[in-house]
């Protein structure tokens, strides 16, 4: 299997998702390219985050939900019965909207995943922690206090710690659900910068409400809009430049020029 940038790594096909009676996603079709950053934009409540959580099957933890359709990850349908969602989530990591470090020390936060996967060797864990924190551009700030509580860090540092924690398990794809929405502009810039730096090694799908952010960091952008009753559907998907400069659809143009949403 040749791995090259811009291969299709993830193919979402006819994806429908239901919260009980409510259909939250209507027939989504999307192809995500390897080692790129793809932004998902759209008005709040349109199902962006729901779609993200379909990709690592986190939605299944919510009661009374139903998924239809297929998502192919490197050619395998992730909903096949022999796919273990735990294993899937080791390949497709997630960074959440609010920084959610564990109330453990910095080292143990980053080492959490590897430990859970069975790495016992302290030296190996130390290496993983250092590499991950360096990738997350946090190493210099915390290298002298790895045993401090994670909650002693600032919000932006906590979010980078969460990114490091995800990087430590070496996923293929990283799902990010508005990772900078609770951060100040400087912390946001830091995170955007680090995303650009790690894109050689990871495929990143980022949900964002910030259209400048989408245009700054991503190569591809998908615009999801919602019908009444909060049912999301894909309006337009393409290269970020194209979508922002000459959108094909009227809805997209209205949204990005701020006429609604």
């Amino acid at each position: 299997m040749g791995i090259a940038k811009n291969d299709i790594v993830l193919e979402i096909k006819n994806l429908n998702f239901y919260y009980g009676e409510l259909q939250a996603l209507i027939n989504i079709n999307l192809e995500i390219k390897r080692n790129t950053i793809t932004s998902i934009i759209g008005p709040s409540g349109c199902g962006k985050s729901t779609m993200l959580r379909c990709i690592n099957r986190m939605n299944e933890l919510i009661d009374d939900t139903r998924t239809e359709g297929e998502i192919f990850y490197d050619g395998r349908n992730i909903f096949d019965s022999d796919v273990d969602p735990v294993k899937l989530r080791r390949k497709i990591g997630m960074v959440f909207q609010q920084p959610n470090p564990f109330p453990k020390n910095i080292f143990d936060n980053v080492a959490y995943g590897p430990k859970m996967y069975g790495t016992r060797n302290r030296q190996k864990l130390r290496e993983i922690v250092e590499i991950s924190l360096k990738k997350a551009a946090l190493w210099d700030e915390v290298k002298d206090r790895l045993l401090d509580k994670s909650l002693s860090l600032s919000g932006g540092q906590q979010q980078r710690l969460c990114i490091a924690r995800t990087l430590a398990v070496e996923p293929d794809i990283i799902l990010m659900d508005e990772p900078a929405s609770s951060l100040d502009p400087i912390a946001t810039m830091r995170i955007e910068q680090l995303l650009r730096e790690v894109t050689d090694d990871y495929t990143i799908i980022i949900v964002t409400n910030n259209m400048q952010q989408a245009s700054r960091i991503s190569e591809y952008t998908a615009f999801i809009n919602a019908k009444e009753r909060r049912s999301g559907f894909l309006v337009e998907y393409g290269r970020t430049q194209d979508l922002f400069i000459k959108p094909q659809m009227k809805q997209t143009e209205d949204y990005i020029s701020g006429r609604f949403g």
Binding site: R89, K91, M94, F96, N100, F102, P103, G113, M116
Partner: peptide, 15 residues
């Protein structure tokens, strides 16, 4: 125990 901590763990691929 916050739901966000549980999600963080599950999201990292733990049982």
């Amino acid at each position: 125990v916050p739901v966000s901590h549980r999600r963080a763990s599950i999201g990292l691929g733990t049982t």
